[in-house]
C-alpha cells in the first residue's frame, strides 16, 4: 500500500499526468485564495465566504486531479464521497457559524 506502484510505470509522462497536474495546481490556487481571504478579510461573514471557496471548488479540483490518476473506479467513488461529505459538512457548518454570529449581534462589515 505504501510502495508506490506507479513508480516504474511513470518513467514517461502521460497526457493524463498533465491534466492531473493542471487540476491539482488549479485546486491549490483556490486553497491559496481561500486562505488569504480567511486571514485578510475584515469580518466573520466575509471570511466564511472565502473559506467555502477553498473547501468546495479547491477540494473538488483536487479530487478531480487525483481521480484522473486513480487505479480503479472504487477509488474514484471514495474520492467523490470524501468531496461530497466535505461539501455537506462545510456548507452546514458555515451556515451555523454565520447564524450564530448573527444571533450574537455581530454586525456585517461595511466598507
Amino acid at each position: 500500500m505504501y510502495d508506490a506502484p506507479g513508480r516504474t510505470r511513470r518513467q514517461t509522462i502521460n497526457p493524463s499526468d498533465y491534466l492531473s497536474a493542471a487540476l491539482l495546481i488549479a485546486g491549490a490556487v483556490f486553497f491559496l485564495a481561500g486562505t488569504l481571504g480567511l486571514l485578510r478579510f475584515p469580518d466573520v461573514y466575509t471570511r466564511l465566504h472565502a473559506l467555502t471557496k477553498a473547501d468546495n471548488v479547491g477540494l473538488g479540483l483536487m479530487v478531480a486531479g487525483l481521480a484522473v490518476q486513480a487505479e480503479s473506479w472504487s477509488v474514484v467513488g471514495k474520492l467523490l464521497l470524501i468531496w461530497w461529505l466535505v461539501l455537506i459538512a462545510g456548507a452546514s457548518v458555515a451556515h451555523l457559524i454565520a447564524s450564530g454570529a448573527l444571533q450574537r449581534g455581530i454586525r456585517m462589515w461595511k466598507p
Binding site: 461529505l85 455537506i88 459538512a89 452546514s92 451556515h95 451555523l96 447564524s99
Partner: peptide, 15 residues
Amino acid sequence: PGIVLDTLARLLTPI
C-alpha cells in the same frame, strides 16, 4: 436546533 443542524445529523448518522 434549526433545520440545517437537524438535517445534517439525520443525514450523517447512518453514514
